[in-house]
């Protein structure tokens, strides 16, 4: 199974089960695999089981069923070796607030038995932005800067697989974009990245994604394929009164699915051959104006809603 000393799949998860207490099933028979060097996104809302999966893969939790390997190593048996090979940025990771940027980085490098110099090329792009503040204590950094430092710390030992648990939660759209740019950069360094996020729009930045809800996987594929497999034609509708439009669509018998989507409402119809002008006329009759109805491209969010 080994190729060039590297496992065929960076991460393999088979029928993974994690139960808390007696009945709370956090992860329910989840299976997926991540190819080396790809960005794999675990996409779902809070409480879907993302963090539990991450913790099993980083050997912090024992699975209650199924198995998992990271870089070909078993998460239960070979936990010590795995701990040498993975980088992990937990959701609430806050660094050492009372240590400076430099000290944090040096500390984590040493803990992982390496030096900052040895793998500086990996973090250079990111660290350059932190360099002016290297003497500043981590607690005094801005949110975006903290996140960059945390990423540097997780990368400093050149991990084979990097696990990022909700790195962009609560972060504004501009910083989120920057963060994903950094991940793309890392991909070129041949590091496998497993990342989780509740933001559906970030799915497109991944090579492959798993949609997850309530501990179950809804779908695992490339974002393109997931979108392609959407069964109906999707339409976007707009009118002068959005709230009224949504209510009308919901009670309209030709409609299969309808929901707000930004400035539009997304709609799919029961009849694939639906007459669009008929729908427009109906909406006009009900008192709406400025109606705009057209076909639209499916997004991951649409797929997610459909799969729920």
């Amino acid at each position: 199974m080994e190729q060039n000393g590297r496992a065929e799949n960076a991460v393999v998860v088979r029928n993974l089960v994690k139960v808390y207490g007696k009945e709370k099933t956090a992860v329910d028979h989840v299976s997926f695999s991540v190819k080396p060097g790809e960005i794999f996104g675990l996409i779902g809302p809070d409480g879907a089981g993302k963090t539990s999966i991450f913790r099993v893969l980083t050997t912090l939790l024992l699975p209650d069923g199924g198995s998992a390997t990271v870089d070909g190593l078993d998460v239960v048996k070979d936990y010590k070796q795995i701990r040498n090979r993975v980088g992990y940025m937990p959701g609430k990771f806050s660094l050492y607030q009372d240590l400076s940027v430099e000290e944090n980085l040096n500390f984590f490098a040493t803990v992982f038995d390496t030096t900052v110099e040895a793998n500086y090329h990996l973090i250079k792009e990111i660290y350059d932005q932190l360099e002016p503040f290297k003497k500043r204590r981590a607690g005094k950094l801005s949110g975006g800067m903290k996140q960059k430092l945390a990423l540097c710390c997780a990368l400093i030992h050149k991990p084979v697989v990097l696990f990022l648990d909700e790195p962009t939660t609560g972060v504004d759209p501009v910083s989120r974009k920057e963060f994903w740019e950094m991940l793309k950069q890392l991909k070129t360094q041949n590091i496998t990245i497993v990342v989780s996020t509740p933001y559906m729009d970030e799915a497109n930045m991944c090579d492959e994604i798993a949609l997850i809800q309530s501990g179950r996987l809804l779908s695992v594929d490339t974002p393109g394929n997931i979108v392609k497999s959407y069964p109906e034609q999707l339409y976007a509708v707009k009118a002068d009164n959005m709230h009224k439009l949504l209510k009308l669509l919901r009670s309209y018998d030709k409609v299969m699915n309808s929901y707000a989507f930004g400035e539009f409402a997304h709609v799919s119809f029961k009849d694939p051959q639906v007459n669009i002008s008929e729908v427009t006329d109906y909406l006009k009759q009900e008192g709406l104006a400025d109606i705009e109805l057209r076909t639209t491209a499916v997004t991951i969010e649409d797929s997610f809603i459909k799969l729920l």
Binding site: K80, Y88, F112
Partner: peptide, 13 residues
């Protein structure tokens, strides 16, 4: 509490 323990546990230390 701060979550740094998770990182330390995941490290080879």
């Amino acid at each position: 509490e701060t979550g740094t323990m998770e990182i330390l546990l995941v490290s080879p230390f």
